[in-house]
Nucleic acid binder design. Sequence first.
DNA 1: GCGGACTGCTTACCT
DNA 2: ACAGGTAAGCAGTCCGCG
Length: 828
Amino acid sequence: MLLYIMSSNYNPLINAICLKLYNDETQQIEEWTDVDYKAYFLSSIKLTQPIKGVINSEEVIKYDALKHENVPMWKTFVSYPSYVKQTHGMPQVYENHVKFFQGYIYDKSIMMGMPYGRKDGKLEFIPDSEAEKRVEQVLKLMKINESDKSCFETWARLLEYSAPNFKRASLDLEIMSETENKVPNAESANLPILCACLASNTGERIALVLLRENKILDNYPDSCTQTIFFSSEGELIKMIFHLFDEYPFIITFNGDDFDLKYLAVRALRLGIPESEIPIKVRDRITLLTKGIHIDLYKFFFIRAMQIYAFQQKYKTIDLDTISKALINKGKIQTGKCVNDLSYLELVNYCMRDAKLTLELTTFNDNLVMNLMLVLNRISRMPIENVSRKSVSSWILSFLTYEHRKRNFLIPNSDEIKALKGVTSSTAIVKGKKYKGATVIPPKSGTHFNVKVGDFSSLYPSIIKVYNIGYSTIDCPHLSCKSNTIGELSHWMCLKEKSLESILIGSLRDLRVNWYKKKAKDKELPKSLQTWYSVAEQSIKVILNASYGVFGSESFEMYCPPAAEEITAIGRYIIGQTIEHGQELGLEILYGDTDSIFIKNPSKEVLDQLIAWAKEKFDIEFELDKSYRYVCLSERKKNYLGVLEDGFVDVKGLTGKKKHTPPIIKNTFDNTKEILSQVNSEQDMTLAKHKIVDLLKSTYRSLKERKWGNLADLAFNVGITKEIEDYGKPNEKDEKNKKGIPQHVRAAKMLNSEDIGIGSSIKFVKVNPILNKGENVKPLELAKTEDIDVEKYIEYLRTTFEQILDSLNLSFEKDILGVTRMDNWINQN
DNA sequence: GCGGACTGCTTACCT
DNA sequence: ACAGGTAAGCAGTCCGCG
């Protein structure tokens, strides 16, 4: 029997730390409390102001990494964790912002998400011999300094231990709606719950349905293993609470702000005593008293997850979009108001949502659940927090852990800022704090046989190799001042390694030298391989953010000189590599941040460059992609390349952007198909003819106003702030009036309540003369005759010029010219 | 008063 | 609340012309 530590909380009722442990045999949550651990803060002087609830103060020595010296500190314990807040804003106080439950994890060196057992009233880690063997293997393979060994070992252990298959159920509610299209409000919870569905990974499909007078009982739905009807809503809710005891994990989609919250408020409203409601509603989160609530909406919302773990497969965050993108199944479209559904329809609809929610955690061998577990381990945060907070808080958490482990003082943000808050480079982009990466201007044209070389994890590698961190950049030692590189005059410490360099560096090494390879290793058992790919993806998410956090003001260890030095070294490295490549006679076509596009290189010279870069910078520079050919225009971050297997890689072009109307997108996809067939320069001539014909055909259908569906003409643009905030003048210059963007004007015409941050608007471009001077209309309100065809032709032109340029074709001459000639001939 | 150049805002993308 | 760099479209302002 193993107990996995999933979560750590403060229980105010007994004023103690309470851990939630997952028992892999009983598949239940067990609790473990520690009444002895007390909250504390540190101060460099004995505080003169009286502090309520002080238990005692003791003198301790901490290592101050900013000053590179030991400092004496007063460690003051208080009887209640909230008493620490009294010191907020006081000078010379430290570590008073560390959350109580996190401090416990750090101070006790708890391995979150790892297997423990109970022994003599204590929790004890239970090693797994198979996993430990793999840990040893990893350590053997890596070339590691003795000083960094424990760090590698710790990461490897957290990443090598396998995951239990957590027993869990998803929950979805349907609420009676007041009026059609009105979303029920969880704060007031004034309407009855019509149906609740639970779907578990043990095969249970339970529907709880409220009986209503005017409804006829039809067939029992076959989507369920159990359907229970209730005449009392209170009994229905009590049944849900009863079922919560069966499942250690409850999964919802937006349960924080809706399902669970509604349930709690509604229960109270119906007179169920608070003590019988196993839900804790907090400000923005809703938790379970005993079990663990995972809100997938919050998890999928995490940008870094969206981009790096799910490759931007979903672009808006709602259950329908995400499940279609990841498990290829969508919600049931009823087209009716929930009130009007028959029992059967209602249950089927609700159960589908519950099943989708569950399956989002089970697909690909429990990918999502395992990602959360790995992040739970790496970040050393409770799983409830890790799934709700973003990547910067994970990074902060493991850095904080490491400070405590090594008896380092956790620096105050203002102190880092006071010493190291100034940048010396000027950003290219207005409003940015410092200079970033270089983008090499592309050589326009179609280039055959292009190889792309790329520094793997460039920025994390720089942090590792050049010893970057808040403590080591511009350190106080005179003798380190000469240790500079690149164009900026910052220097890096030669006497001591930064924690960032050690931690991020070791993660990087593990990813590059072990997990990336293991994730692709077909020799391994399937389950181990998928586990390695989870580990690899989790590390990738963290590494990708590891540079950015230093440039982010809200990050507790914000250190802009470190951030600008990282990008400066990056510019230096890529610049030197290009220069050397050119000296070797290579033709460099393009490059962005950490990559170089090389035209038709010989294998020997390419290998020579790769070896040179690795040797010179101690960072892997590898052949990343081989293109049959690449179409470059003069635009940066915009190109199309056909890989050797025929896959068409499109970057940045308008044709692939999510707001582009389908009619243009479809034409673009057909163009991709044509280009995919091109194997040689000879093939290109025919392809160009096909593309010209294709574009002429789209041009004609626009010109002749022949399109299938008006939806094919719709732009689809996201709303990124409150509707009322658009057009508001800047705080600084109030006079400067701003216009309201098109998509927002269209949104306003809809008068709908569910338009807000995160939603997107479909609109078409219309003729202002026919539409009271307005040049857009929401798709729902538009008619075919409103359409401003010329605007669409213009959009077609700009979209395709991005590739026509590189194919040496002209929209004006090759598409319009001939077509206009055709028209002229036809008309005469 | 008109029209093009310029600026700032906005979205979506790349690394 | 990870960063900066780039493309493109739109709305508003500026400025010279006459």
